[in-house]
Amino acid sequence: MKILVCIKQVPDMESRFKLNAEGTWYNDQDLAWRMNEYDEYAVEQAVQLREQLGDGEIVVVSVGPDRVKEAMKKALAMGADRGVHIKDDASHEKDPFQIAAAIAAYAADEKFDVTFTGMQSQDRGSAQVGVLLAAHLGMQAVTTIIEFSHEGGMTTVHRELEGGLKAVVRVPLPALFSCQLGLNTPRYPTLPNIMKAKKKELLTLQMADLLKASALTTTDETRYPEKRGGGLVLEGDVADQVSQLMTILKEKTAVLK
């Protein structure tokens, strides 16, 4: 079985974001980068599926500048077999349709049986690339899965709906699955596996060679949200913060006598 996992490298969401010079996205300097959280579940599910089957190959693909190879190395250390880096220093200017088109251009000839993606990225959050990739490749997609099982050629997944409800869905392969948080417990790469990952193949392809499609959406600007104000911020010494909060709770709420 051939398994594809699509991952994205994103900034730590606790970062203090500055805007880029054009005002179209965040400034990517001085940020701590990591693998998109949803994608860690995608990598883990791929590794678990291969462990269950006892054989198969896992390819991890990522789009972006050279720094995204760090996230790919983590996926390789978690158990992916080889990596395909679609190099694009301006990937933040591509829209979801283009990102999906570029990955599809690579994946079309590889005939993957199963593709896992995160259900969305933590920075853009469009939740489109996975479904669009499946559409480009003419295969089915099931989004937001929190359980996955593969028995006798059929794949059964649980989709997470609102309010705790789940939908149990069966789909034949090839298919793409977008992974929701909690699908599994992503493993930490062990030191020997991190060393082994350094020797795994990591091929670089150029975005310009893969992408023929134009963007369907464009970004006018990126800005900070309007502050609603009103909220009080307490900083400083803990004992003072406690006293101030106690006073506020007594005045503003009926819960403290």
């Binding site: 829209d95 979801p96 349709f97 259900m119 969305q120 959050g125 469009s126 939740a127 489109q128 479904v131 669009l132 559409a135 480009h136 997609a141 099931v142 989004t143 937001t144 989709r159 997470e160 709906l161 609102e162 963007a215 369907l216 959406t217």
Partner: peptide, 22 residues
């Protein structure tokens, strides 16, 4: 929603239309 983010990109692709999410 779990319905919208699943179906919307399929329609956008079929129509060749751009999608803006959330």
């Amino acid at each position: 929603s779990s319905y919208g983010w699943d179906l919307a990109p399929r329609l956008a692709f079929a129509l060749g239309a751009g999608q803006v999410s959330e």
